[in-house]
Amino acid sequence: MEIHTDCLGFYNAPDSTGQTLFKCITDVFLRLNIPIERLKGYCFDGASNMSGRFSGVQARLKEVCPDSLFVHCANHSLDLVLQEVGREISLVAETLNFVQGIATVIRESSKRKELYVSMFGCDDVVNILAICPTRWCVRTIAINRVCSSYTELQKTLKILKDDTSVRGDARAKIGGLYKQSLKGRTLFGLLCCEALFEPCEAVAKDLQINNARAQGALECTNLLRERIVALRDDTVVQGIESKVTAAEQKIADVRQHRASKTPACYRHTTEPEAHAMSTWRQEFFEAVDLLTAELKRRFDQDGMKIAALRENVLIEAANSRGQQQTLELESLPLPQPISDVDRYRLDLQLKMLGDAIGLMEEDQA
């Protein structure tokens, strides 16, 4: 049951349409004398030309190999989940932009690097990292380092914003980052992103190991969903807010959304109505809900479930060492001797043949 991997090479396609890529794949199999009918599975990203249900590469391969399985890359699915959260939740988007801006300002000049390092004194220096533009699952380290060196970054930005030797556009950007660092919302967003991204990065590492399994990917995703759902708790938010308060940040009074009051004729109490939740807490809970929903949607794949089921049957059969086992073959979508399309065509041909024989007999009569 060991995995054997071979790289078939790199091929330059004239364009990226599904039809062209399908022809390239079949051409490679033909040149290497590999029967494409024996293809049992393939894994792509979510692009329409690859994963499209009607004209994508996976749909065209499915026509040639009806019993094959398509699986959307698990690690890429997790990456898309975090992209959706960063695009829809303003708190997460603003925080990631702040981390990237800090890294760009400090790292683009050796003079600024030396000023930043001097803020640590005899302590160990925390190097600032830029955010990876494509891999969303490896951004936790950059967020953690900004959190751990937040005070030193503030001091560095405060000096740089008044430094006349810094060019005007850079100094304006530094001044904006400094004002943003004084807001409690910024540190709150950093701590929230740290809580959301850290478990996702741990799961991403497990999804990329050499002996990764389809069943293991589903189990890791379920555990990740449970971990994220557990963050939707007032005690978690209170803990984050206490850290912001302990850092002596300027926490401005957040404007509450206007509460929709119940008409007096329908109220049977004089108790005041509860106020709406603060904007920070609401945005964090929205991020948690969206992340949970996207995990369920992205990893709810029929191909992954069937692959995990077949995988378990093979492993159990290998571990049984010849012992008899009762397998539920009905629940295991195995390839049929003949596909439904071929069966329909065969029935149609038999019907046409029968009609032709009947017409011949009538003519002879």
Rank of each mutant, 00 (worst) to 15 (best):
Q256K: 12
C200S: 08
A247V: 00
K250I: 10
K296P: 00
E286H: 13
G216E: 04
E226A: 08
D302F: 03
Q215R: 08
L223N: 06
A195F: 05
N319Q: 13
Q215N: 00
S320L: 02
T279N: 11
D233M: 07
V288A: 05
A287Q: 06
C265I: 03
T235G: 06
V229S: 03
I315M: 02
N319S: 12
L196I: 13
P199W: 12
E219A: 14
V237K: 02
L224K: 03
H268L: 12
D253V: 14
V229A: 07
R281G: 06
W280P: 09
V237H: 04
L224E: 03
R267H: 03
T262S: 05
Q301T: 10
G239C: 08
C200H: 01
L223M: 08
N211D: 10
E241R: 11
A307S: 10
A246K: 15
N319I: 11
R321K: 14
R213Y: 01
S242R: 12
A264N: 10
R232Q: 14
A230M: 05
A246G: 02
Q256W: 02
Q215C: 00
E311W: 04
A214M: 15
V237F: 09
H275C: 05
K305G: 07
G216K: 07
K243W: 08
S242D: 15
L291P: 01
L223S: 06
R255L: 15
C220W: 00
Q249M: 14
L309K: 15
N210Y: 00
I209M: 04
E219H: 15
A230I: 06
R298I: 03
E286L: 14
A246D: 07
V236F: 03
V244Y: 05
D302W: 07
P199C: 11
E198R: 15
E294M: 07
V313F: 01
R227F: 01
G322F: 00
A214Q: 05
Y266G: 07
E316L: 09
G239H: 09
S242P: 03
F285Y: 15
R310F: 15
E248L: 13
G216C: 04
R258S: 04
R267L: 09
H275M: 04
L314F: 12
E311N: 09
R298H: 05
I315P: 00
P272S: 14
R213L: 14
C265D: 03
K250Q: 07
T292H: 06
G239M: 08
K243R: 15
A287I: 07
A293P: 07
E283A: 05
F197C: 10
A318R: 03
E286I: 06
C200I: 05
G322I: 09
V313R: 04
H268D: 12
E286A: 06
P263T: 12
A274T: 15
R227L: 02
N211H: 04
R267A: 02
V244E: 06
E286G: 00
G303W: 11
T279V: 15
A264Q: 11
T279R: 13
D233G: 04
S320A: 15
V254Q: 03
D234G: 01
D233L: 03
G239I: 09
L207S: 05
L196A: 10
H275Q: 11
L295I: 11
K250T: 12
A202K: 14
T245V: 09
A246H: 05
K250N: 07
Q238R: 01
N319V: 13
D253I: 08
C200Q: 01
L231A: 03
V203G: 06
